Simulated scan of single mutants.
Amino acid sequence: MDFEQFVLANEPAIRLGFFLGVFAVIASWELLAPRRALTVSKTLRWASNLGLVVLNTVVLRLLFPLAGAGMALFCAEQGWGLLNHFQVPMLIAIPLAVVAMDFVIWLQHVMVHAVPALWRLHRVHHADRDFDVTTGARFHPFEIILSMLIKFATIVVLGAPVVAVVIFEVMLNATAMFNHGNIRLPAALDRVLRWVLVTPDMHRVHHSIEDDETNSNFGFNLTWWDRLLGTYREQPHAGQIGMTIGIRDHRNPQEVARLDGMLLLPFRGEIKNYAINRRSFMDPPREE
């Protein structure tokens, strides 16, 4: 068994191990030194958010048994994708594929904020009235399925190596838990990390109730895309402690903190100031 086959065979255990390890570290950090006071029962939120994680995991394993790593192996065997076609050396192909997939996830994140039907799904993530490690995995099953299909398409086009796909998935899960953590980094460390990695204070801005702040800082892992493409916001108007987390039209804990409420949320209400192209602050000034 070569290294890629070993990684593929042990992919679920590798991902689960990193997930549990990072979750334990961030959850303990939050307990010992929380950045903000919570507004909704932690027991209710954690039961619902983690229940959604379990549901999504079951759905993905039923629909896509081999997940992204299996698709990467299939593409390698068929010679599909740019990296396979040009036979790019692994030392170059792996980091190139990881960075390219991160950019696609950034584009996907912008898309789910811009398209009304997709924002209906994605607002399940944003409707959480608190911001902690469990928020990082709080996504509607339909959005999770869409995300997996986009990953499959990206892997096919790139010809991403199996190892690169597993590294990317582990990094994505780990950084999502880290940058959604209700934790505080020393200011100097936060400034340094922000040149490469999304920090909790940086991503918390994205979960603000204010439209212009919600539609900024789309990155989960690398900060380069927000900086290069003009969507970077350093701090919220009200400050990290004073800002309000969530969505204006969905504040009822029974709707946004219970599992059944989250699953039904995409089918409720109208989409008004949903995203990017309908924000009031982008409207041109009226002539007097």
Rank of each mutant, 00 (worst) to 15 (best):
G21F: 15
V25H: 03
I26W: 07
I26E: 01
I26A: 04
A27K: 12
E30D: 06
L32I: 15
L32M: 13
A33N: 10
R36A: 04
A37C: 03
T39C: 07
V40G: 01
V40C: 07
S41D: 13
S41I: 04
S41E: 07
W46T: 08
L52H: 05
L52G: 04
L55M: 15
T57F: 06
V58N: 04
V59L: 15
L62H: 07
F64V: 07
F64N: 04
P65S: 08
L66K: 13
A67M: 11
A69P: 02
A69G: 14
A69D: 03
M71W: 14
C75E: 02
C75K: 08
C75W: 03
Q78L: 12
Q78H: 12
Q78Y: 02
V88L: 15
L91P: 01
I94F: 05
P95D: 09
V98N: 02
M101R: 08
M101I: 10
D102Q: 11
Q108M: 11
A114Y: 04
W119R: 02
R120C: 00
L121W: 03
R123F: 00
R123I: 05
H126Q: 11
H126R: 09
D130W: 08
D130G: 02
V133E: 00
T134P: 01
A137M: 14
F139Q: 07
F139P: 00
F142N: 08
E143Y: 06
I144H: 01
